[in-house]
Amino acid sequence: MGSVRTNRYSIVSSEEDGMKLATMAVANGFGNGKSKVHTRQQCRSRFVKKDGHCNVQFINVGEKGQRYLADIFTTCVDIRWRWMLVIFCLAFVLSWLFFGCVFWLIALLHGDLDTDYKDDDDKSKVSKACVSEVNSFTAAFLFSIETQTTIGYGFRCVTDECPIAVFMVVFQSIVGCIIDAFIIGAVMAKMAKPKKRNETLVFSHNAVIAMRDGKLCLMWRVGNLRKSHLVEAHVRAQLLKSRITSEGEYIPLDQIDINVGFDSGIDRIFLVSPITIVHEIDEDSPLYDLSKQDIDNADFEIVVILEGMVEATAMTTQCRSSYLANEILWGHRYEPVLFEEKHYYKVDYSRFHKTYEVPNTPLCSARDLAEKKYILSNANSFCYENEVALTSKEEEEDSENGVPESTSTDSPPGIDLHNQASVPLEPRPLRRESEIGSRR
């Protein structure tokens, strides 16, 4: 089982795998120059863009038009607004034209077009017409509009002379109601789609790998820009990579689940303020055997998904993003964004995407760390350097704002901070800030 798991979770494809794949392509008759073999020097295209759209195009789909027309309502909801407006206008105009032609044909076959009612006051002739005051196609078209929109100006009306005319008036009224219901329903469904809710759900630009509770963890940050909550919010993550099976089958995008606390339930989050999602790199993680150097040379993509129900409509929305291997910062942490004021908490989104480097973060893999092949620094050293990194950030910001350097908390000259780390230190809580992250 261990060997199978290692093969499945191998992220960085070796040169031997690339040569094996190329040999397979030639042997199977696919070596026509169009096949692409992804190596370390040639990274694959992003499968999920940063804005959440999937970078996929469908080609050679059989009976595409028929399949889309069979699900016309979903098609109308998914198309762009400009095409929705075109369909909206065409549906009414074509129905008016169709029934206008029908009423014109009825008048033509009944002989109503030969009668001039402007110079004739004989009401008996008017009563013999199928539709009064309809003696041309324009008049028939206007009567069709008046019937379907129930305008009723009063000059044109159907008589009991022709039952077919009466039937067409009733039929057009029913068709008009159906068109109204369909168009209004599609427009309302399109307006109520929770897709735009994703514009106020954000992911951090970069993911980070750092120590948390004595273990290497992959972390990324999510935030909600609205005050309205995302009900039943939960997160998922998958690692996408290519691999070759033991039988020699090439899988271009193998999807591997990344555990973010599904078993323990901590994948469900209360997204009021930005939260750091934590994936513990343990023996079940696809990143277990990867060191910093392996991450730098790897070719994979981590897709992160945030799902929840919109509070206003109770409709489920899904926000997506992805991180390539070069977008994962090893040995970094996110800057705090949640600050405790006197009577409330304040979230500073200008710090949302910012990170700071944490010294002495192990550069080895989580496996080597678990097997004690890498000796961690003293816990006080880690905490102290973590505090120094934050303090230096604040000093830089104070210097930019014009604060005198004498007010900063610099260490005395001639003292090495790293050498001082081995000395037991008193706890130094942050002056006014605390970061709330997901705790395992």
Rank of each mutant, 00 (worst) to 15 (best):
S3A: 09
S3G: 06
V4H: 09
R5I: 09
T6V: 08
V12G: 15
E16R: 05
E16G: 05
G18S: 08
L21T: 09
G29S: 04
G31N: 08
G31I: 07
G33H: 06
K34I: 10
S35R: 11
K36I: 11
H38P: 08
T39Y: 05
T39L: 07
R40E: 15
Q41F: 06
S45K: 09
S45L: 06
R46H: 03
F47V: 11
V48W: 06
K50G: 06
K50N: 05
G52I: 01
C54H: 13
N60Q: 12
N60R: 13
V61K: 14
G62V: 07
G65C: 11
R67N: 12
L69A: 12
A70I: 03
D71F: 05
F73Y: 10
T74F: 04
T75G: 07
C76S: 13
R82I: 14
L85D: 02
I87H: 15
F88V: 12
L90T: 10
L90C: 08
L97A: 03
F98T: 12
F98L: 13
W104N: 03
W104I: 10
I106N: 03
A107H: 01
A107V: 04
L109V: 13
D114F: 04
D114E: 05
D114P: 14
T115M: 10
T115A: 06
D116E: 13
K118D: 01
K125T: 15
K125E: 12
K128C: 02
A129Q: 08
C130W: 09
S132N: 09
S132M: 07
S132V: 03
S136Q: 05
T138W: 09
T138G: 15
A140W: 00
L142Y: 01
F143M: 03
E146F: 02
E146T: 03
T147Q: 03
T150P: 03
T150E: 03
C157N: 10
T159C: 02
C162G: 00
I164K: 00
A165C: 02
V166W: 02
V169I: 08
V169Q: 03
S173M: 10
I174W: 10
G176R: 03
C177F: 15
D180G: 14
A181S: 14
A181P: 03
M191V: 10
K193S: 05
P194W: 04
K195F: 07
R197V: 10
L201W: 08
L201R: 01
S204N: 02
A207N: 01
V208L: 09
I209D: 00
G214Y: 03
G214Q: 14
K215P: 00
C217W: 04
L218T: 02
M219I: 03
M219R: 00
M219D: 00
M219S: 08
W220C: 06
N224M: 05
R226N: 11
K227T: 11
H229E: 07
V231H: 12
V235R: 01
A237L: 01
L239C: 09
K241V: 07
R243G: 10
I244T: 09
S246Y: 04
E247A: 10
G248P: 04
E249I: 07
D254Q: 13
I258W: 00
I258T: 00
G261H: 06
D263A: 06
D263R: 09
I266H: 10
D267W: 06
D267K: 06
I269M: 10
I269F: 09
F270V: 12
L271T: 08
P274K: 00
P274R: 02
H279I: 00
E283Y: 03
D284F: 09
D284M: 13
P286Q: 00
L287G: 01
Y288Q: 00
Y288N: 00
S291N: 11
S291R: 11
K292G: 04
D294A: 11
D294I: 01
D294G: 09
N297D: 09
A298N: 07
F300A: 00
E301G: 01
I302G: 01
I305E: 10
L306S: 01
E307Q: 07
E311P: 13
T313S: 08
A314M: 15
Q318K: 03
R320E: 12
Y323F: 10
L324E: 03
N326Q: 08
E327H: 00
E327F: 01
I328S: 00
I328W: 00
H332F: 10
Y334E: 00
P336F: 01
P336Q: 14
E341A: 10
H343F: 04
K346G: 09
K346Q: 05
R351K: 10
R351G: 15
R351L: 15
K354P: 00
K354R: 09
T355A: 02
T361R: 01
L363K: 04
S365N: 02
R367K: 15
D368M: 08
D368L: 11
A370G: 03
I375L: 14
L376S: 13
L376V: 12
L376I: 07
S377Q: 10
S377T: 11
N378A: 08
A379L: 09
N380G: 08
F382A: 12
F382W: 06
C383T: 14
T391G: 13
S392I: 05
K393S: 13
E394D: 09
S406Q: 13
S411V: 12
S411A: 14
P413Y: 09
G414H: 11
G414T: 12
G414M: 08
D416L: 08
N419W: 06
V423F: 05
E426K: 03
E426D: 11
L430Q: 11
